[in-house]
């Protein structure tokens, strides 16, 4: 086991983001699915980088599941966070009101 260990974790094969396992510094050389990328900025542990180029409106997939949508485009290796994605979740009680039925009890 002497190969350098990637600072990125793929949680599910369908994911379009990778989770940062070890802090990344701007300028670090990254390998994302065989594509060499230079990190544009510092990214701390637990944050996400794009596994492929994403456009505004694309679903963000983590754990193989949609966790929100992009609000702006991002290149491979770009930071995916609050500034370029948003929740698609509407609380079910809100959804009920939106749907015009507030339920009987």
């Amino acid at each position: 086991m002497s190969t350098p260990i990637s600072p990125l974790i793929l949680l599910h094969p369908d994911d379009n983001v990778l989770v940062v396992r070890a802090a990344i510094r701007a300028g670090d050389a990254l390998d994302i699915d065989g594509i060499p990328i230079t990190a544009a900025q510092d990214v701390t542990v637990g944050h996400k980088l794009a596994r492929r180029a994403l456009a505004a409106g694309d679903k963000v997939l983590k754990y193989g599941a949609p966790i929100g949508s992009m609000t702006a485009a991002v290149a491979v290796g770009g930071h995916v966070h609050m500034h370029n994605m948003k929740s698609d979740y509407i609380a079910s009680h809100t959804r009920q009101v939106v749907g015009g039925s507030e339920g009987g009890h």
Binding site: V19, V45, I67, H81, M82, S87, Y89
Partner: peptide, 15 residues
């Protein structure tokens, strides 16, 4: 901690 949305937070427990 890198979490962005309610879905993402819950997915962590759900995983």
């Amino acid at each position: 901690g890198g979490l962005t949305t309610q879905e993402e937070k819950s997915m962590g427990a759900y995983s």
